[in-house]
Design a protein around this nucleic acid. Structure first.
Lengths: 128, 128
DNA sequence: ACACTTCCTTGACATATATCAAAGAGCCTC
DNA sequence: GAGGCTCTTTGATATATGTCAAGGAAGTGT
């Protein structure tokens, strides 16, 4: 498996989260307890991913050649009604994990890989 | 037991997830959609972390010098009743993010850093 | 055995969530 | 503008979740 996007080789000082999204957080560390506010924001994003349907939607977006798909394509893939899929996509949208763009009749949802990776960075705990 | 955990100085290539826990998952990738089963398992673990109280509990365990704490210590820290904290700790326990060990009257919960890092690894998506 | 501490479970309640059908909102094409 | 797509919102319902009080379970000490 290729690790193309790892920040392992980058200088630790580079905080490239703020550039791409307002949601960010330092990695959990043994140095100090997370603030209540940060815990709330982090939990919101994790909860958005804490649903099998939404995990599958994220994965499906990731595997699209164009990295995007519309509701009418996704609904049959996950086997749920369009309103339900729309509801789930809104959850992901609200925490910045996807973006949406209308083109004609369709609304195309696109994954924000940086936001997902930002979560990965927070969970890559700094203790050992 | 040393508080400096496991694989700090080990070669990065070593995939020691399968060794330490049954819950694991390859990083999300653009190559194929995650299976429904894997999505379920991954969502369960993310949902366990998708609550501000549980995030704070994890962070608090991480900051303990011994990497562990008992319910009676954690309850006042998060400002909730002991049964409620016990309930949250059980959620974390059920998905393998913490372990517990009784010593005398107290039950000490301990963070499983490699389980958290395993989640980080899954979210460090492989696409760009 | 008894009392005390810590922890968990149960029961109850309020809130949140997932889901769909139905209706509304946007955007075409004719 | 009429009709037909696509998408979202609303309303309804069932399930899940977070919380606490009360009581039970496990362990220690007298």
């Amino acid at each position: 498996m290729s690790r193309k996007c790892q920040y392992g080789d980058m200088p630790k000082a580079l905080p490239l989260l703020e550039d791409t999204s307002p949601i960010c957080c330092d990695p959990l560390t043994d140095l100090q307890v997370i603030s209540a506010d940060d815990a709330m924001g982090l939990a919101q994003r994790l909860k958005a991913l804490g649903d099998p349907t939404r995990i599958r939607l994220v994965s499906m977006l990731l595997t699209q050649p164009s990295q995007e798909a519309c509701t009418c394509e996704l609904a049959p893939l996950v086997g749920l009604s369009e309103p339900t899929v729309s509801h789930h996509l809104k959850q992901l949208l609200d925490v910045g994990l996807v973006t949406k763009a209308r083109r004609g009749l369709n609304v195309y949802y696109r994954l924000e890989p940086q936001s997902v990776k930002a979560l990965a960075r927070v969970l890559d705990i700094d203790c050992c």
